[in-house]
Design a protein around this nucleic acid. Sequence first.
RNA 1: GUGCCUGUAGCUCAAUGGUUAGAGCGCCUGACUGUGGCUCAGGAGGCUGUGGGUUCGAAACCCAUCAGGCACCCCA
Length: 433
Amino acid sequence: MAKVQNIKGMRDHLPPAMMLRQHIVATITGVCERHGFEPLQTPIIEYAEALEGKLGDDESLIYRFEDHGGRRLALRYDQTVPLARVVAQYAGQITLPWRRYALGPSYRGERPARGRYREFYQADADIVGSSSPLADAEIVAMLTESLTALGFPDFVTMLNHRQIVGGVARASGLDEASAGGVYRAIDKFDKIGADGVRDELLRGGVSAESAAQILALVQIEGPPAEVLAALSERLAGDERALAALENLRAIIDGLGQMGVPPERYKVAPRLARGLSYYTGLVFEAITPHWPEGSLLGGGRYDELVGQFAGRPIPTVGLAFGIDRLHDVMEELKIGPRPATTAVAYVTIFGPEQMADSLALARELRAGGVNTLISLDSGGLGKQFKDADRKGVSYALVLGPDEIARGEVVIKDLRGGGQRAVPRAEVVAALGEA
RNA sequence: GUGCCUGUAGCUCAAUGGUUAGAGCGCCUGACUGUGGCUCAGGAGGCUGUGGGUUCGAAACCCAUCAGGCACCCCA
């Protein structure tokens, strides 16, 4: 007999979890569509070649295999590479700038942990073909709207720019090659502290003097305007870093004008982010309730999309990790938690009343009320118990007396109590309840 | 991928190497032939993750394997 087991790092989502997941998805796609983003879906499988050479060190995490024809294929690693492929492949049918969102599973062969799985769902939202700081700001605004709508009480989005991070490294006399180690070290600041970062930098061959400078830059905190001012002072000689600071300033202005609450974002020079394809803005939303890491992140990547198209196509975007959002919401006990999809449970008094009950169920459904019909006419007690255990809020009774009077009894299984309402008013009564 | 911890009923957990592996919750039946939750009485449910080994004897000790958790790594 086959193993009764799912694959390591891949999960089944039973109804209670699935209902929360669908709420998360509906909330996020709602925000996307209110911003005029268009949906896109691509296959889970891509040519391995399409994914290779874009992820830096972690290509070993890609699931690869051969199909029956010997083609080298791979499961997609994120939604970004397929986006780049689509933009190049359908260049004639897509008008830039293009706002699109995509929802679906991606696969990484990592060691699973809490909030991190080998199969995970992402909702990806990107603005393709614009380098305007307004595009960057809109993405961050959508992130803020989404997390707020989901009910996250206290999240903050940390903003930084890759060329500021690069400037930090350059200011310390390091070349691009050794910069990667510097990014990784400072990215861990919140986890291992200043001394931890210093140790790691020294181990990586950075001089004590440079390490001290990097640490000083990275620890600058305060209101965005002040942080930007302090950074431009320290990075004064670095053209690219100054341009980046100007860009970040424009993005932050945009956030203000879009009405993003100031307490929801801050400039954080220590934010680096691992993915190597980011070129401009980088950001991560964090909450104190999830010390394991970020809720979601993203940034600007002006070169990746162009790799397929053969010309630069500036793009900024973000990825919501549905699984991670779900895990955190589960832990914080936020979000709706319906026990089932049905609101009403229509009992069947007996064989004589079955037709009336089925007709009532049909009326309720036509009126937009999710309705469960009993499969058992063997006693009301049993049916009430069934309805209660399913978590349905209202049980409806249509016995001989009710039918004679043209009424339906609505029994409130949550609060207790019951009342008789005229048959014609049942949908309205449940609608307002 | 590396290191550490864990795996016993549907769930949460008990059980000095020694009878037939237990409890709470949940589940099923009944008390209750037009009314769930509360109460009471009864009942079902286990090759102790899997496969080897040590031992007179293993849920417990050893090895392997699978799965989960934590740290590293990285990230959604």
